[in-house]
Write a protein that binds this DNA or RNA. Structure first.
Length: 163
DNA sequence: GCCAACGTTGGC
DNA sequence: GCCAACGTTGGC
């Protein structure tokens, strides 16, 4: 059992999109970064994942989901009409993978990037809070997973609220 | 919309 | 194999 974090732009696909389909799986397609792909390939059914909203008004962790399949080739890489089409990828040797995920729950509040950055010591090594990191799929250490989840029950500090 | 930081591409 | 140019990510 491992823990992960995956980013999505809510304008494209948000936690509410996922929440509308409880019990169903959703293909996490469109990952076009080798490091992120490799992390997806090392996922197992049952792994838990933080859903992170990026490139939006309030970037942060907004929910939980669960991995439902092993990684398999992302079909959008072969679709010439698709935004994520990759003409360099051959069906006999697919370059990009995806996993399917299911909705678990929304968090009671958004754990903002700003708030998470305020816990630099506890979250040391987490790619999300590392300077310059743009990784969209990353592992979360178990103790860090627990710590982040525990923040849900607390009020964010004034500084984390941007005050 | 800006732009820093990063990843990829391709000429050499 | 180097590295400049380019494209993308994503916070602000």
């Amino acid at each position: 059992m491992a823990y992960w974090l995956m980013k999505s732009e809510p304008d494209t696909f948000s936690i509410d999109h996922l929440a509308k389909r409880p019990g169903k799986t959703e293909a996490w397609d469109g990952v076009r970064n080798y490091q992120a792909r490799n992390f997806m390939r090392s996922m197992s059914r049952g792994d838990e994942v933080f859903f992170y909203h990026s490139n939006c008004d309030e970037p942060g962790i907004v929910g939980l989901m669960r991995v439902r399949t092993e990684a398999y080739p992302d079909p959008t890489q072969f679709d010439s009409k698709h935004a994520h089409y990759d003409p360099g990828s051959k069906p006999e040797e697919p370059r990009w993978s995806l996993v399917e995920v299911e909705f678990v729950r929304k968090l009671r509040r958004t754990l903002t990037l700003n708030e998470l950055r305020g816990h630099a010591e506890r979250l040391k090594g987490l790619a999300l809070v590392m300077r310059g990191s743009r990784l969209s799929v990353m592992p979360v250490r178990p103790e860090q997973w627990k710590f982040i989840l525990s923040l849900e029950k607390k009020d964010p500090s004034p500084s984390a609220r941007g005050e």
